[in-house]
Design a protein around this nucleic acid. Structure first.
Lengths: 157, 157
DNA sequence: AGCAGCTACTTGAACGCTCAACAAATCCGC
DNA sequence: GCGGATTTGTTGAGCGTTCAAGTAGCTGCT
């Protein structure tokens, strides 16, 4: 049992500021989407991924990996999106276990309608507050972090 | 109706990386606390705030403000913490509408037991991946952002 | 003093996420 | 190919958050 390596005052301050900033940011973005487009941010992200794909279809597992989201969460989410007619499931032709999530025209239209407001919200909440150098650093730090955490996750299962 | 100011490629990349990093980080921290201490991160934060206060008691509204959390969310959370015996409610002596959330000895003990594992998790997930310069920038950016978003929230209600 | 409007907090329903358990198909070693 | 381990995806229960509505107490205006 080794001694705990407590956070230094600077680290504590950074961590607290991070938690505050991120809660406010994500809440603001999520609230805007819910209010103006009736969908949580998580669903918006799913629609974006699908719309960015050539045939607007992805396997559940690929989608889950790309969004860093659990299979269960995605499955529930796709079920909701299906109820709204924004996504439809299809059997995967090459693997009978697999399912494809396919963006419908209605889903694409919903995304197109939501996008401008969402982008404005992100800009207003995040990019308007930061200068280009800060954006640069935020991007680099996030990428470092995402890589670190993803590799860690693979190691520990 | 003005033209949407879409995100530049750099901004898009930063935003995506940010979302990935943030989700992985918070999920990792939350999962560790749930697994090892049976509490979600949100509850841990409440206990920390209370334990940092001279008499381990705060008014609901002060606590909610400090944690950037809605009154409703806090009220439900305190109800759960009360069931576990970690927090107790008291009437506010100066304002009959008010309630104090008071950290019990059991709550303090639960926090003390959870802290080392949590700190290790934060260190392993975040600070081990970043060099001191990055930590510096992350802290500064987060602070800028938190101030920006908090002032925005006050303006718009 | 009285009353309108605000603040502080709670409640319940709807919804999304987590976790564990499950079914089905594929993979891999023999 | 046979059979166990792994992969893929779903399901349901339990929990936390949100949102809208509601209660109670305070504040300020007249």
């Amino acid at each position: 049992m080794s001694e705990t390596r407590w956070l230094s005052p600077d680290e504590q301050k950074a961590w607290r500021a991070y938690l505050n900033a991120h809660r406010l940011l994500l809440d603001a973005v999520d609230a805007q989407l819910r209010r103006d487009s009736g969908m949580p941010h998580a669903y918006y992200e799913i629609l974006v991924r699908l719309s960015d794909t050539p045939d607007r279809a992805l396997r559940m597992s690929v989608l889950a990996d790309g969004l860093r989201v659990s299979a269960s969460r995605l499955s529930h989410a796709i079920a909701r999106l299906e109820e709204r007619g924004w996504v439809r499931r299809e059997d995967c032709p090459t693997d009978k276990r697999g399912q494809l999530a396919v963006l419908t025209d209605e889903g694409f239209a919903a995304l197109a309608a939501a996008a401008p407001g969402h982008v404005e919200a992100v800009r207003g909440a995040l990019f308007d507050a930061l200068d280009p150098e800060q954006v640069q650093w935020l991007g680099a730090i996030s990428q470092t972090l995402a890589d670190h955490l993803a590799s860690r996750e693979r190691r520990t299962g």
